[in-house]
Design a protein around this nucleic acid. Structure first.
Length: 201
DNA sequence: CGCCAGATTGACT
DNA sequence: GTCAATCTGGCGG
């Protein structure tokens, strides 16, 4: 099962395709010699300036520029005193990113609980269900900003062979969204954030 | 340099 | 359900 980081080619596509295909993959964080990991069960696609919810509409801003980086780099975005983990994803000379919103934890649950300030043996859903929660569980912060996920770093994504059914919902927390829903969730997962309006049984 | 909105969370009415 | 905490980047003065 898996083992090697997904290469740049995986990320060098439209962010909506990358978001959809990230569902069911394994996000791995090397932390203090230990592997922390979880299956990605929820992700959102963000596009260029035409996307009213995307930071890319602030042309010339540091986040807008980061969304033009080569595909496969981590883009860490601070908001509401949390860090949010994105992956730069776009076709050649494009702009875009995918927000990782929730994981089903697999490895290193005790360390994740400690990072989250929770007692060992806590409900695993509390560890990584939510974009701010999973960054704390995996100790992802500004130091990861710009790191390639394509190998050699402390963070990457692996193939799993899992092919969960994926459904789409409106993005969470955005005031102006696109017509097409851009939030992708693993159907039936108990680890998806329970936000209003998304029925995905 | 100060003000403010925002891809959130968790504690409380 | 409501709401404040508390931080970064964008933008105006």
């Amino acid at each position: 099962m898996g083992g090697r980081p997904l290469g740049r080619g995986f990320y060098a596509r439209r962010p909506d395709e990358v978001a959809r295909d990230l569902i069911g993959k394994l996000l791995v964080r090397l932390y203090g010699g230990a592997r922390l990991s979880g299956i990605i069960v929820e992700a959102e696609a963000y596009f260029g300036p035409e996307d009213p919810a995307s930071r890319a509409r602030h042309r010339g801003g540091s986040l807008a520029r980061a969304m033009e980086w080569e595909p496969g780099r981590a883009l860490v975005y601070g908001i509401h005193r949390q860090w949010l983990l994105n992956v730069v994803a776009h076709p050649p000379s494009g702009v875009g990113a995918v927000l990782i919103r929730a994981l089903e934890p697999r490895e290193g649950l005790e360390v994740m609980a400690r990072n989250r300030g929770l007692p060992p043996g806590s409900d695993p859903r509390l560890l990584t269900s939510g974009p701010g929660r999973l960054t704390r569980a995996l100790a992802v912060d500004k130091a990861i900003h710009g790191a390639p996920l394509t190998g050699g770093g402390p963070l990457w994504v692996e193939e799993t062979g899992l092919r969960p059914a994926v459904c789409r919902c409106p993005r969470v927390g955005v005031t102006r969204d696109l017509e097409e829903p851009q939030r992708y969730v693993a159907r039936g997962s108990k680890f998806v954030t329970a936000w209003r309006g998304c029925r995905c049984p």
